[in-house]
């Protein structure tokens, strides 16, 4: 399948400035974004559970250039969302899709193998990932170390693509039941508050979560740094850090596709995707809407309706 994908990209390459995909990074466990300009570059392409990045994040800045992009199912939803918001032009992007079997969580792997030195080799087959490092070999079941989002994945195949290679896979689940969220919310308020105060206290305000988010598009005008409006102070304290996450999640309500880049990028492993899960569920319950499925749809928070179907204001 990978070969077929490479051939397809090579065929399309002459028409494009470049194609973004994944290549091997500094070791066998870490893939890295790959910019393919020449057919030789295409040979470096990899596809598999290590392709953790959502490459759609690059697209808004490339608006106006003709580029190709390789997408997993979840990444394709970000592309759909960017198209819907006119942040990129459909005629400028060529989308290459392939069926995804799920990606790994490097955080979970690190928890198993610890902080090793150089990774010598990585193999995956039959649902097992084997990592060789410092002479030791670690075997892990893929389902134990896969990213949480893959557990409730409904779209393993690109929701939109110009070229789709390989056979479409059945979704992991038919319906997202938000069990993770329900479990978290079953705790009493004080515990949840303490949890977040503790988690957010670690935040170093690097804004990696924002920078990794494909839909954080305010560029130089992010509220995190702006003085006018001055939503967040420069004070060091958990309140402003927490406030930023709430603003981030609010700005993404109805737009976020829960690709999980924010949480993946966080260097101190704060589970910030949970905030977005909360909003995603609220949007689903209130508006019966899933972000990033249809570039032509009007997202509920970007439309004005005097009477919302599920918000019975008059009965309040």
């Amino acid at each position: 399948m990978l070969e077929q994908l490479k051939d397809t990209i090579k065929k399309a390459l002459p028409e494009l400035d470049f194609v973004i995909g994944w290549g091997m990074g500094f070791d066998a466990l870490h893939a890295t974004p790959l910019f393919m300009y020449e057919p030789e570059d295409v040979d470096k392409l990899v596809w598999g559970p290590l392709n953790v990045h959502n490459l759609a994040t690059y697209l808004p800045a490339l608006k106006g250039r003709k580029v190709g992009i390789v997408v997993k199912g979840c990444d394709s939803r970000s592309v759909a969302e960017l198209l819907q918001e006119n942040l990129i032009n459909r005629e400028d992007v060529v989308i290459f899709g392939a069926p995804c079997r799920g990606t790994v969580s490097l955080t979970k792997i690190r928890k198993v193998i610890g902080n090793t030195g150089l990774i010598e080799d990585v193999n995956y087959a039959d649902g097992t990932l084997t990592v060789k490092a410092e002479g030791a070999s670690h075997e892990m079941a893929l389902k134990d170390i896969r990213a949480d989002k893959c557990g409730y994945c409904r779209f393993p195949n690109a929701v939109l693509s110009d070229h789709f290679v390989g056979e479409k896979r059945a979704p992991q689940v038919e319906e997202d039941t938000f069990e993770d969220l329900a479990e978290f919310e079953s705790q009493p308020f004080e515990e949840r508050r303490d949890f977040w105060m503790k988690e957010m206290d670690r935040c170093i305000r690097c804004y990696a979560c924002r920078n990794a988010c494909p839909l954080c598009v305010c560029r130089d005008h992010c509220v995190a740094q702006s003085r006018d409006p001055h939503w967040l102070s420069q004070q060091d304290g958990v309140r402003d850090k927490f406030m930023f996450q709430i603003i981030h999640a609010t700005h993404l309500a109805g737009r976020c596709t829960t690709c999980g880049e924010c949480e993946r990028a966080c260097p101190v492993d704060i589970p910030v995707l949970l905030f977005k899960r909360k909003f995603t569920k609220a949007i689903k319950d209130t508006f019966d809407y899933d972000a990033g499925l249809d570039p032509e749809a009007t997202p509920p928070l970007l439309a004005f309706k005097a009477n919302e179907d599920n918000i019975k204001e008059k009965e309040w």
């Binding site: 305010c218 005008h221 702006s226 409006p229 001055h230 939503w231 700005h251 004005f304």
Partner: peptide, 23 residues
């Protein structure tokens, strides 16, 4: 003020009711 609430950039401000005034 709907636009002001919608604009992700905070580029729209409502005169006499700016974010900074409300804050």
């Amino acid at each position: 003020g709907l636009c002001a609430a919608t604009c992700p950039q905070g580029a729209v401000q409502l005169k006499h009711f700016t974010d900074n005034q409300i804050l």
